[in-house]
Nucleic acid binder design. Structure first.
Length: 587
RNA sequence: GGUUCUGUAGCUCAGCUGGAUAGAGCAACGGCCUUCUAAGCCGUAGGCCACAGGUUCGAGUCCUGUCAGAAUCACCA
């Protein structure tokens, strides 16, 4: 509709002033609430060309539009702004049009997210990553992309060796079964234990006169861990078997967390299976003189011409680093899917890493490297700052989910809801609500910004929240159920004698926006745009619901309002789906 | 020190490619359940959009500088 108006403004200018203007000069936007009208044309961008004062030009164009466009009902001019009212009939028709054109692009996008390390359980930071990843996948899918969700499990490296070593030294053969602990938690405990003992050794060495850096590199524990990594890369039987066992524990733990968050993947890569390819590629890079081998055997990429430093790709002992395995993974992934785009959902702390990755891949001759997109999101912080695992301030993912559901339960009991439900149904609804609160809380903020989470205040269930939107849906659903009970079934036809009121029109307008909101969120890779839209829509509907009677109305008006409600519910549900949030039929 | 990101109400966040008098929620205060779900609706109060310049008809938005916070610049991942 904006486009129709835009074209006609161009026509108007041509016929009134005999001037040609570009479409970009015609700004059509929604009229602000304080003014009457639906759409506003701003005359300033072309005011010089038409040689009129803003008021006169706006007035003349408005007059032209009213005479030549039947959808234009009336207009008014304030300063240089031409506010146009679209006929309510046009809005009403729009609501009843069934437009189901699904844009099919079928370009493949590989979307990597989650990417946990196997040495500790998932925490709030990972939760943000997972929720963003899952939501982006759905948003891109809805925009017509063929999305492959992939997870890259970081199952090798020095960090795993630390947990393994600690378990070997102090674990006394403990397992998840004997301890009753979730596997990822148990392994995480040993990682923390390693760090504690390692710190002790460092302090000891520092007191003997070593510098901090020397102490970090000479502590017996770290030497043992490095040795273990070397053994691992040389397929040492014992090391491999501990590694397999402990990873198995971790995966069992992760599976539970993923399931609780409704996260799934099309494909899981393991770095233990991709790093060798990376190593090979790096070695080839030396032969073709793209990379440098130093006298101690370490391999580097010289990035000084890109205004960056030198970057290590293989250690002097021949073992690979993070970058090495990411090269291999990217290559493997590209060969497997030949995607148009590879998106990595990884925190903003790794911006530098991905810059380097792209440059190195390009140097190595992979022209698809330019299609790599690092979707970098901000950190989740506590009111007192960053989460520190060593200080025990990490917010554990499983605990957080449990707390959210518990809060939902308290609220529900207090409000006296859900009393007539079976316990099974009730639990499911509480899960939907608790999880909805958590997911919405995280997804509504602009991904690139850091966000603050206050565990003491816990997440709200009122106001701009997931449950607010879910509640709106439940209300609508309840209307439909009641309509059903009363035998109101034929309500979907165009209502002949109805003139929608202002609130109804603004609801219809908002529903129309959904398509462009979806597109925008896909282009900008931002679930927050969907989240904020869903909230605005729910708020608008609640006002409508409060101010007007729906089912107790009669005839066409009742049918129209019921239909309008149903459409709102449908879009709320779809918007929430795009966020990975379920909506309950009752709450 | 270099690079990147952020700075909007007491708190948590919106603010579309520059557009009219900067918006929500929470917290505070005051109203609304004999009518479809009050997890709701309405109202009051709360702002030098970090600061200073610049670009122009017009700047929270773009440019430059300053200040503050964060991340990163590892033979960690």
């Amino acid at each position: 509709m904006e486009i129709i108006l835009q074209k006609n403004v161009i026509k108007a200018i041509k016929s009134l002033y005999n001037e040609d203007v570009n479409p970009e000069q015609i700004l059509v936007q929604a009229t602000r609430k304080e003014f009457t009208g639906d759409l506003t044309v701003n005359v300033f961008p072309f005011i010089k060309q038409v040689k009129r004062s803003p008021e006169i030009a706006a007035e003349e164009i408005g007059k032209y539009l009213k005479e030549n466009l039947d959808i234009v009902d009336s207009y008014n001019v304030i300063k240089g702004f031409l506010n146009i009212s679209i006929s309510s009939e046009y809005w009403l028709k729009g609501l009843y049009e069934n437009k189901t054109e699904t844009a099919v692009k079928k370009e493949t996008v590989v979307l990597e997210f989650s990417s946990p390390n196997t040495n500790k359980p998932l925490h709030l930071g990972h939760v943000r990553n997972n929720l963003l990843g899952e939501s982006l996948a759905r948003i891109l899918l809805a925009d017509g992309f063929d999305v492959k969700k992939v997870n890259l499990v970081n199952d090798r490296g020095i960090h795993i060796c630390k947990s393994m070593l600690a378990w070997q030294k102090w674990g006394n053969g403990i397992t998840p079964e004997t301890s009753g602990k979730k596997g990822d938690k148990l392994v995480g405990d040993f990682y923390v234990l390693f760090d504690k003992e390692y710190k002790k050794q460092q302090e000891e060495l520092i007191s003997q006169g070593l510098t901090k850096e020397e102490a970090e590199n000479k502590a017996p524990l770290i030497l043992e861990a490095r040795e273990m990594l070397l053994k691992w890369e040389n397929d040492d039987k014992e090391v491999i078997s501990i590694w397999k066992m402990m990873n198995r524990w971790v995966y069992a733990g992760f599976d539970i967390t993923y399931r609780n968050l409704d996260i799934s993947f099309d494909k899981i890569y393991y770095e233990s299976e991709t790093y060798k390819l990376g190593k090979d590629t790096v070695l080839k890079g030396i032969q073709s003189n793209v990379l440098i081998k130093k006298s101690d055997g370490s391999v580097w990429a010289d990035l000084t011409e890109n205004k960056l430093d030198e970057k290590l790709l293989l250690r002097s002992d021949g073992t690979s680093v993070y970058m090495t395995q990411d090269i291999g993974t990217a290559e493997m992934r590209y060969n497997e899917y030949k995607p148009e785009k590879m998106i990595y959902v990884v925190g903003n702390e790794q911006i530098y890493h991905f810059n380097v990755l792209k440059i190195v891949l390009e140097k190595l001759g992979f022209d698809w490297a330019k299609n790599i997109v690092h979707f970098s999101y901000g950190m989740v912080e506590l009111p007192e700052g960053k989460m520190k695992s060593r200080e025990g301030t990490v917010v554990d993912a499983d605990d957080l989910i449990d707390e959210m559901v518990a809060t939902a339960r308290e609220m529900s009991t207090e409000l006296g809801k859900l009393e007539d439900f079976s316990s099974e149904e009730k639990e499911n609804i509480l899960r939907i609500i608790g999880l909805g609160a958590l997911k919405y809380f995280i997804l509504k903020v602009d991904p690139k910004k850091n966000m603050v989470f206050n565990p003491k205040e816990s997440i709200d269930f009122n106001g701009n929240t997931g449950p607010f939107i879910q509640y709106t849906y439940a209300r609508i659903n309840s209307l439909k159920t009641k309509a059903d009970d009363e035998g109101i079934l034929e309500y979907k036809q165009y209502p002949a004698g109805i003139t929608p009121n202002d609130k109804e029109i603004s609801l219809i307008k908002m529903l129309r926006q959904f398509e462009s909101v979806k597109k925008e969120s896909a282009q900008k890779l931002s679930p927050a745009i969907i989240a904020n839209y869903a909230y605005d829509l729910a708020k608008e509907y609640n006002q409508f619901y409060h101010d007007f009677i729906i089912l107790k109305e009669s005839g066409e008006l009742r049918n129209f309002r019921l239909y309008l409600s149903e459409q709102t519910g449908r879009i709320i549900k779809e918007a929430m789906w795009l966020l990975g949030i379920e909506v309950p039929v009752r709450m």
